[in-house]
Design a protein around this nucleic acid. Structure first.
Length: 89
DNA sequence: GTTGAGCGTT
């Protein structure tokens, strides 16, 4: 169970996400991927809750919501695609 | 500014 949070501002941190999502359930884990090469945020994040019902509540409440002057996107996350990454630097 | 890692081809 995990939730994808996209269209985020680059100013948003995992703390902000934790703060907001904890209103709808118990945060199990927060993951904010940063670009491996630039070290900067990629404008999205992942949140895991204890229960899927909690995630659903968060999705309903936050998807399309205006946050940090930006309409964010919240959806059930897709499993990590394990696509080949041959010549990465 | 939209789907996470790492190994360094898994």
């Amino acid at each position: 169970m995990s939730v994808y949070v996209g269209n985020l501002s680059y100013e948003v941190t995992s703390e902000d996400l934790s703060d907001v999502f904890s209103e709808y359930g118990t945060i199990k884990r927060i993951h904010v991927p940063t670009d491996r090469e630039t070290g900067r945020m990629r404008g999205f994040a992942f949140v895991e809750m204890e229960q899927e019902s909690e995630e659903a509540a968060a999705i309903e409440a936050l998807d399309g919501a205006e946050w940090m002057d930006r309409v964010i996107r919240v959806n059930p996350a897709k499993p990590r695609t394990d696509k080949p990454r041959y010549n990465r630097r």
